[in-house]
Each structure stands twice: as structure tokens, then as C-alpha cells.
Simulated assay, not measured.
Amino acid sequence: MTITYTPIGRVRSPYESPADVDHDAVDETTGEIVLDGEYEAGLEGIEEFSHVVVFAQLDEIDEYRLTARPPHADDLAVGVFATRSPHRPNPLAQTTVELRERDGATLHVRGLDLVDGTPIVDVKPYVGSIDDEDASFGWLQSLRE
């Protein structure tokens, strides 16, 4: 089976490479999600949401690992599917960002952790759930405490 996605836009970000992403400062990192003009009408109404979920193809990742060492978790090694590591068999990213403004086909966002030029494959409004307070955060829980 082959799955093919056509990018609908690109990221504009201060990060030039994956190594440049500062995980300590990413909450304040601003950038833009720029969709191709033909998709602008698909953004109608998105400015009413405070946050959006961005799906991207991590096109600079050329290898995967089945285990990962999460940032800030010193000696912890877990399976890649239990992390947000970019080194995955299918290097797709899902990131939730604050939507600060929409200008045509451009979304101005904060909290961006993607590299400049990263292809965007989808954008969706973030819709919290009543179940959020009951969510479990696995190994991350111990880092929060």
C-alpha cells in the first residue's frame, strides 16, 4: 500500500534545522503556517478558534529509531510511539499552536516547534474535550510532578 500526501503549504519559522529547535523556548516561538492560495477558502472560520493543530511531514528526517530519549528525561528510554520524537517510521508531526491572527492564507501562530520550510499536510481547529481532565500522560506525568 502506498499513501501519498500533497503539501498544502509551508512553515515559516526561526528554526533552520531540527537541531535548532529550542524545546525550552518553543512555547514563545512565533511563526507562520502559510497555505497555498488555492486552500485559503478552507480556512474560513478558523480565526474563531484560539488554537489549531498542524500536521506536517518532517522532510528532513531520514532515519527512524524504535526507542527514544525524551528531552528533560535524562536516562529514560522509551518506545518511539510513546514519544513525540521526529525519528519515526513515518515522520509526521502533530503540533498544537496558539492562533494569534489569520491573514488570508497565512496563520500567525505561537508555540511553533517546526523547522522553516516544513511541508504542511493539514490544519484543524483544536477542540478540547470534557475528557481532557481525565487524560493520562504516561511517563510525562512523573516529569510534571
Rank of each mutant, 00 (worst) to 15 (best):
R12T: 09
V121L: 12
S129M: 13
F81Q: 01
F55M: 14
A82M: 08
E60M: 08
H72V: 07
V123K: 00
G104H: 06
L43K: 03
A105R: 10
L76E: 12
E60Q: 14
T96S: 08
A105D: 09
T4D: 07
D75Q: 09
K124P: 04
A82W: 08
A77E: 15
E133W: 12
P71K: 09
A73D: 10
L35T: 04
S142P: 05
Y5A: 10
S50N: 15
G37Q: 13
P119R: 10
L58Y: 04
V115K: 03
S129N: 09
L99N: 02
R65Y: 10
E98L: 12
L92E: 07
P7C: 04
W139L: 08
L35Q: 01
G128L: 10
E40L: 04
Q57Y: 15
V78W: 06
G37E: 15
E28A: 15
H51E: 09
L107M: 05
L114S: 01
Q94F: 09
A25Y: 00
R12N: 07
T29M: 13
D27Q: 13
D134M: 12
E98N: 13
W139R: 05
I61E: 01
V109T: 06
V115P: 01
T30L: 05
A77Y: 11
E60A: 07
L112Q: 05
A56F: 04
E38V: 11
P18E: 02
V121K: 00
P70E: 10
T29K: 04
Q141N: 12
T29C: 15
H108S: 11
E40G: 09
S50A: 15
I3D: 02
Y39S: 05
E133D: 13
V109Y: 00
A82N: 11
P86T: 01
A105C: 08
S136R: 14
T83D: 01
V127Y: 02
D62G: 14
L66T: 11
E101Q: 15
P125G: 11
L99V: 08
R12D: 08
S129H: 10
T29E: 12
E16P: 01
D22T: 04
G31Q: 02
H87V: 05
Y39A: 03
R12W: 03
E38C: 05
L143V: 14
V127K: 06
L112E: 05
E98W: 08
V52K: 00
P70N: 07
E48V: 04
V123Q: 00
R110C: 08
R102L: 07
V11I: 15
L140S: 02
D36G: 07
V115A: 02
E145F: 09
T118F: 02
D75C: 03
D131M: 13
